[in-house]
């Protein structure tokens, strides 16, 4: 039995679960755009909102930190580089390196924005089934006749569905290689090759099998239409999100 990713859908019947997935996607897009344009005051408002949403979704902060540790390292690196390369009043310097106050502040704002956007995505992903996201993406792509919304929607659904399977395969292969002392090989390129190539091969074989299994169940262009349920609550949330985005971006 596998572990559930912190980003995986969690069963529930909260207002966030019941919300129309199209409204959720519009809301996340509006809020993300507003957060990218916001300064410190707006980010404080967004942070308060996102802390409330995370508590509401009952997601463990420790688990989030563990799963996103590499991303957090990357953001820390972005912050550090920003602090080093941005000109301005020097906070302190060592040898050829100097850290500017402007760099520290702009780096912090950039990383803060991304952390909020990641948490925003998390609150949507834990309260929305992939099937609902797929249907919403298909709905938004419908006006573009040169795209195939049905295929793009299916690809999104399969991608989300198969991430845990691929991660499980990677864990199994990693464990099997550690059992044969791969850790004694210090060359990271060698280790990447011996893990990456078999994993890719297995992923492609899995994709082949999946195609056959889908064909066996009559997968084709036409499918039963998704049952939309746009209600009064959805309208209120949409208006609220437009107002909130305006507040965040202009603060």
């Amino acid at each position: 039995m596998a572990e559930l990713s912190v980003f995986a859908y969690r069963q529930g019947n909260s207002a966030a679960h019941r919300l129309d997935p199209r409204i959720k996607l519009i809301s996340i897009s509006l809020l993300s755009a507003a957060i990218l344009a916001a300064q410190a005051a707006g980010l404080f408002v967004a942070t308060g909102l996102i802390i409330g949403a995370t508590i509401y979704c009952r997601v463990s902060l420790r688990q989030i930190g563990h799963e996103l540790r590499w991303l957090l390292f990357m953001l820390a690196a972005v912050w550090g580089i920003r602090a080093l390369v941005t000109p301005g009043e020097t906070l302190f310097s060592w040898s050829v390196f100097s850290v500017s106050r402007t760099g520290v502040l702009t780096g912090a704002i950039i990383c803060w924005r991304w952390v909020i956007i990641i948490f925003l995505g998390l609150t949507v992903s834990v309260t929305t089934r992939t099937e609902d996201i797929r249907a919403a993406v298909e709905w938004f792509l419908r006006p573009f006749p040169w795209l195939s919304p049905h295929r793009i929607g299916t690809m999104i659904g399969l991608l989300v569905r198969f991430i845990p399977v691929i991660l499980t395969h990677a864990r199994e292969m990693g464990a099997a290689q550690r059992a044969r002392c791969v850790e004694n090989r210090k060359n990271p390129i060698y280790r990447l090759r011996v893990l990456g190539l078999p994993l890719l091969r297995r992923t492609f074989v899995t994709a082949d099998h999946l195609t056959i299994a889908m064909e066996a169940r009559c997968y084709g262009q036409g499918r039963t239409a998704y049952a939309w349920h746009f209600g009064r609550e959805d309208g209120i949330v949409l208006v609220g999100m437009v107002l909130l985005s305006s507040v965040i971006s202009f603060c």
């Binding site: 859908y9 069963q11 089934r129 992939t130 099937e131 659904g157 399969l158 989300v160 569905r161 399977v165 899995t206 099998h209 999946l210 299994a213 889908m214």
Partner: peptide, 10 residues
């Protein structure tokens, strides 16, 4: 192989 034929998220 059940892993390669299950497509639904729930």
């Amino acid at each position: 192989d059940t892993d390669t034929q299950i497509v639904g998220e729930t």
